[in-house]
Design a protein around this nucleic acid. Structure first.
Lengths: 225, 225
DNA sequence: TAAAAGTTTAAACTTTCTTTAAAATTGATT
DNA sequence: AATCAATTTTAAAGAAAGTTTAAACTTTTA
């Protein structure tokens, strides 16, 4: 789960980053309107936490841009002032939630979790794929009543496979989704190979089925149904 | 991806049909309120493109019917009049997007794509050729419900044949398309022969039909319809 | 029916994938 | 702050699959 933090107070920004990273989110940061704009245009996020007052422009403009680009990210607006008009403006522009500073990090996390649940997975907290039950919030996977212990990378990989189930996903796109956009080493998919194989083995051990098929020269395909 | 076009202007209807079909959507057409009503009741669509002014009734009534039937299709409203009240009425009744005539087909396609993405359908646009369903995003080919396992070269070759369906393609152009401009050895099409034959055999094995006809001295022709 | 074009087959070659294990990093605990 | 355990990354060798080549064989057409 990728989160973009657009916030100009460096202290708060770092706090949010640290806390959400601890909770298993992958965070990227933007401290100005311009940087935020670039990131929104270029990359895809699951959640965007957006401050209204930014150096270089108003956060609501970024929200408008986001909607114009038809981006799917859920948006949580964060504002210093508790003004009703601001809040309404944000929600009317398609924001999903609104918070007033100051706030507890726990509350931030709870709201981000709720947003992920509402947005990405259409409200259903669990994803069921054949024998597997995946809970993206709890970050657990179970099969026939027992949990499959996955590492963080394995879990993210599984989630990515399931979102793209029955599609061939290239190692390039896996790398981009799990390691961010800074994955420039074009030849080196060693770590993708290794994690995929480890995940595969764990799932086979529990489910007795190899859902992850190798598509030689193209990538992998998570098959189901 | 199935699209229902409800539109009473035959010219526009055909243009939309042609364009969206080229983009990999499967289109059905309705020119009157009554036909649209029947199709909505009887069949399932991923996207419905709905004109407001129709012979026999108002498109908004169809929208209401759709919601009453709990149909999941995304609805894109198309209307000649750029009236704000119409737009609001449509969106309040549960339409997902709104376009004013006249519009460019590119824009229509972009909005349909966005709608599909937003509704987070599992599938991607598919190209259907007789028994074959080709998904260029998922990189899969299926026939009568089962996948045909193709290698990368075979998949690219099939895609190239289908883009040029019912046209003769020379071995030279196949070579250029699959191997780039560096294919200078004019005499040597051995590898084109071999891949074409391998693809051909796999398709025959699944579909029982030889879509790829040899045109002696000219090349190959992928025949359909 | 000869020449040209297409098909088949299989071996040589190349690329990609799997496996394994060690090195590096991260996180937790004392 | 140091240590230990777990996770992630790197690397390299071997296996598997795909691609190309080439030669023998078959079909088409002039």
């Amino acid at each position: 789960m990728k989160v973009l933090l657009i916030e100009d107070e460096p202290m708060l920004l770092d706090e949010m980053d640290t806390y959400l990273t601890e909770q298993g989110y992958r965070c990227e940061k933007a401290t100005t309107f311009g940087v935020g704009e670039d990131k929104i245009v270029l990359y895809e996020y699951d959640v965007i936490i957006l401050d209204i007052t930014l150096p270089g422009g108003n956060g609501l403009q970024l929200l408008q841009l986001l909607k114009k680009l038809q981006k799917e990210a859920g948006v949580l607006i964060v504002s210093a002032k508790d003004s009703l008009t601001d809040k309404l403006a944000g929600l009317n522009l398609g924001a999903d939630d609104y918070m007033t500073k100051p706030f507890h990090l726990e509350e931030l996390n709870a709201r981000v979790n709720a947003l992920v649940r509402r947005k990405s997975f259409k409200g259903s907290p669990q994803i069921v794929v054949d024998d597997l039950i995946i809970d993206p919030i709890a970050k657990t996977v179970s099969c026939n009543g027992t949990f499959i212990a996955l590492t963080r990378k394995e879990f993210e990989l599984l989630l990515y496979f399931i979102i793209n189930k029955n599609r061939v996903v290239s190692k390039q796109s896996i790398a981009e989704h799990l390691w961010g956009d800074h994955y420039d080493s074009v030849d080196n998919f060693d770590t993708v190979y290794v994690h995929t194989m480890n995940l595969r083995k764990k799932i086979i051990a529990h489910a007795g089925i190899d859902y992850i098929k190798t598509v030689y020269g193209m990538g992998y395909k998570f098959t189901s149904m």
